[in-house]
Write a protein that binds this DNA or RNA. Structure first.
Lengths: 237, 237
DNA sequence: AAGTGGTCTAGACCACTGC
DNA sequence: CAGTGGTCTAGACCACTTT
């Protein structure tokens, strides 16, 4: 319990959510302005603003100057998923992590790759193929292209000791990127690497990251059948 | 362009990000306190607080009372993906949406389902199987269990006109949920429904949502090969 | 043109927590 | 228990849009 007189922004947020849940305010409805709500709750306008802004950030409310604040028409359900270091992912399951650098090459990349990364044809890229293992069983296969122009230091990194995945997370900070998930049948080559039958349903993650000015890396990670990516949804307060 | 003298919280946020990117402040480092930064930037402490709080929300900074503010050790890359209404997902690709309610039943659910939803064995649930189509071709198959105790109104909803997916998004505000992605081989039954070969790699999404007090629905959606879930990563300002 | 949200300030007190 | 972030206030001005 808390002192009955407290007027915190979380209280206001909770009350607004209650009114939305109980349909007092329905999707699309215009809700009272900040000044009016400040009067109703007996607090400063900034406190109302704090509460409503938080809900707008979550996608529950739509706020526009002059037009006022409305309950969002499509209550956006958002899931936030974090991009893990594969080593931690394995260790979190209580397994022993190991990785094996299957191939490494450095030279002009294929047009398909340079196009995908938005680079000029013939750009030299570092190409790494890594098998990640959990308790010496294949955990996932990583096929990665790196733009050395963006992270020159990677050429000197001990990539047989620390995986490119982990090195980049630690050294190539704060980039923007795209990510895509899909299901895919295992090619014969991938099937052999992952010790699964050809055609087995693989879960693949494609990720491209870049700095403000240039692409850093493009990677495709394939997981054998059974792998799940999980997260939690937040739909309200 | 803006007046050179402006000291906005976004300016401060950008400057902090710059110092992190350029390694002036490294992961784990303690950065100056709010009062000190307010002096440095010549603004109110609340403005600093606003900038740092935003970065903490993004996972770039770790803030704790008394302990101060540190650059996050694990540069948490977070992707926020929105959960769309399937109809909109289809229409966004310029296709005509249609859905077909393949089966509907109402009665005691199997122990496997009640256990997954955290309900007592034998609880009565509504079970719906829906095929969603884009331009009359199978788009995805939805297998859903709904707890009528949480949303009694669904028993009267015209589910052949509006899909349960969409009805729930509009009518059931939830406070919490889980979501999981995986790749899976098509069973003979699923293969026939989706018009794909048995064993084809399906992309499946499992989702469970609940109110604060009780589970609402548990759903499993299967997409034929080729479907991709995409989103963007934000690593900084 | 007017009214809404967005931001900033200066000051105050509170809550948590590491020393 | 002292110092940090967290919050609240009262007031002001600004920026954006819809009317």
């Amino acid at each position: 319990m808390k002192p009955a007189s407290a007027t915190s922004w979380t209280d206001i947020q909770a009350e607004v959510m209650r009114r939305i849940r109980t349909r007092v305010w329905q999707p699309g409805d215009l809700i009272p302005g900040e000044i009016e709500m400040a009067r109703e709750f007996g607090c400063a306008r900034a406190t109302i603003s704090r509460a409503l802004r938080a809900l707008a950030d979550e996608g529950v409310l739509d706020r526009r100057r002059r037009a006022g604040t409305r309950v969002a028409l499509t209550p956006v359900r958002r899931a936030t998923l974090s991009i893990p270091v594969i080593r931690r992912e394995v260790e979190a399951r209580g397994a022993l992590y190991r990785h094996s650098l299957l191939s490494r090459s450095d030279g002009p990349a294929s047009p398909a790759i340079t196009a995908r990364m938005g680079l000029a044809a013939g750009t030299r890229l570092l190409h790494l193929q890594t098998l990640h293992l959990a308790d010496d069983r294949p955990w996932c296969f990583e096929d990665r292209w790196i733009n050395p122009a963006a992270v020159p230091a990677i050429l000197d990194a001990p990539l047989s000791q620390i995986s490119a995945n982990e090195w980049l997370v630690q050294n190539a900070f704060f980039s923007d990127g795209d990510i895509a998930f899909q299901a895919e049948a295992a090619s014969p080559a991938l099937a052999e690497i992952l010790s699964v039958p050809t055609g087995a349903p693989l879960f693949t993650i494609e990720r491209a990251t870049r700095t403000e000015t240039q692409p850093i890396t493009s990677v495709r990670i394939s997981y054998p059948p059974g792998h799940r990516v999980t997260t939690t949804l937040t739909g309200g307060a």
